[in-house]
Amino acid sequence: MARPVNPRKVFSRPKVKGFIPMGFYASDLDTIYLSVEEYESIRLKDYMGLSQLESSEHMAVSRPTLTRIYEKARNKIAEALCEGKQILIQGGNVIYHEKWFVCNSCSSKFNIKGKSDNTEKCPLCGSENVVLIENDL
């Protein structure tokens, strides 16, 4: 029996759920599903400019595993760009570094260290109208 896959560590949820192509040849019927761990590998390596080793340490995986996740993500994004497919970011075996909330009053986002009972107040405006981001997406 194969060893179960360890969950990958992700800093926070992506800002958007996905991307829709535009233009005559755009197709919103064909969808590429990018997992959250694949998104995180692109964020760490391409956006933050980290090395593969640094990215793998951040995601709590080995460097070869990170390389596989990253290659898969690059291939999916390339396919979506070249064939005009939409990208949906969802799924994946991930755990988050900490809980992130969004305040519906001032639109700020904040994290909570340690245990939380999900009845937090916004540290900026004090509003109780806050939503856990994981549940929101």
Binding site: C106, S108, F110, K113, K121, L124, C125
Partner: peptide
């Protein structure tokens, strides 16, 4: 170091004073 992060809304060009006033008022 167990430091909390607050990300301000991206669309608004907030002044430092505005942020402090928001914290004071809560």
């Amino acid at each position: 170091n167990n430091i909390q992060l607050i990300l301000l809304p991206e669309t608004k060009g907030m002044m430092g004073e505005t942020v402090i006033n928001m914290i004071k008022k809560k």
